[in-house]
Computed example of a mutant assay.
Amino acid sequence: MRVGLLTREYPPDVYGGAGVHVEFLARELRTLTDLDVHCWGEGAAGGVVRHRSWSSLDGANDALRTFSVDLAMAAAVEGRELVHSHTWYANLAGHFGKLLYGIPHIMTAHSLEPLRPWKAEQLGGGYALSSWAERTAIEAADTVVAVSGAMREDILTCYPALDPAKVRVVHNGIDTALYQPDHGTDVLERLGIDTARPYVLFVGRITRQKGVPHLLRAVRDIDPAVQVVLCAGAPDTPEIDREFRDLFQELSGVRQGLYWIPQMLPRPDVVQLLTHAAVFVCPSVYEPLGIVNLEAMACGTAVVASRVGGIPEVVEDGVTGVLVPVEENFEAGLALALDSVLADPQGARRMGEAGRERAVREFGWDAVARRTVQLYEEVLKPG
């Protein structure tokens, strides 16, 4: 089975959950299919072909640059039996490949443009183009993969013209060999984190979606003896970057033990940070699933997360963590939930152990890949 996997992110350029998903899915698919990966960048090696936007569009709106990459990807997938695209950055390439070569297009929806109106702040008029690209591709795709049951509901709500039978749920996964407890302390010591004091950890991009400003306001009110570590970078816009910096500076004036790590850390460093955190926090206001919660659970750490999207399908409230409603008093709810976990280290340890067990039992990438290949076989041999 000759498959073309289409994505913006691919190692070493992975900055979000969709990139993590593609990285590990591709690793497993290589043992099950004849796989070519098409991603952003330059060069080709080892079944990975990288495409860059047209130089004539340097400085143009990101959506236009994306479309030029999509055209290059579509041209390059000739000879594939099936294309599988991830995120709006590659969906149009999959759609073009379907039309041009008469092959099936499967797309995985990691998020939905209609549910991310703040993207207009980032893309300007390009948000209308990204929304058009997603709608065009999703409504014509042979199969749409939702990464959670909640995501499936969102897809059918946003795109009512879509046949519900075409929307299938395949959860994200986690490599529990890479993400497992690391009880060393060298990374913490190098970063200057006090190993004798508990800390709350956030790992994610500085975006409206990830809810970082909510977190910065919430941690004002948690136990002042607790440290707060923010692995937060890649701001979507100058505006959200300034807001984050202002809130961080303000928070620095009222509490000690506040750490901001703006650079992307190597995975082993993140694993050690996750392992030693007293609690991991995910304050997202929109999250189809949230791989980072699985990463924390696999490292044996209790999670406090917002009750949105697919997060409740990962974090079991009261068992592997605490879920916080976002509808009202979200920031106060985050603070209360964090304090409740921090005040009960034994309970937090039990949550962490339960989270590790759940991650191993239910979210292995080998199972995700086998389910994905089953979908490939279904669209290649309908009926």
Rank of each mutant, 00 (worst) to 15 (best):
A296F: 01
A296K: 06
M297G: 07
M297H: 07
M297W: 03
A298Q: 09
A298I: 02
C299M: 05
G300W: 02
G300R: 01
T301Y: 06
T301V: 14
A302W: 00
A302E: 01
A302L: 05
V303R: 04
V303A: 03
V303T: 09
V303L: 05
V304I: 03
V304T: 05
A305G: 09
S306G: 13
S306A: 14
S306L: 09
R307V: 07
R307W: 13
R307D: 15
V308Y: 02
G309Y: 10
G309E: 09
E313N: 11
E313L: 07
V314H: 07
V314R: 10
V314Y: 02
V315W: 00
E316N: 11
D317G: 10
G318Y: 03
G318T: 08
V319P: 10
T320C: 07
T320W: 04
G321W: 01
V322Q: 05
V322S: 06
V322Y: 00
L323T: 01
V324L: 08
P325Q: 04
V326C: 11
E328G: 12
E328I: 09
E328W: 11
N329R: 14
E331T: 06
A332R: 13
A332S: 14
G333R: 03
G333F: 00
L334M: 12
L334R: 04
L334C: 01
A335D: 09
A335T: 04
L336V: 14
A337P: 08
A337N: 01
A337G: 04
L338Q: 06
L338F: 08
D339Q: 14
D339A: 13
D339G: 13
D339K: 06
S340H: 09
S340L: 04
S340R: 14
S340D: 11
V341G: 05
V341A: 03
V341R: 00
L342G: 07
L342E: 01
L342H: 10
A343M: 12
D344I: 08
P345C: 12
Q346E: 15
G347P: 13
G347H: 13
A348N: 03
R349Y: 13
R349I: 09
R349G: 14
R349C: 13
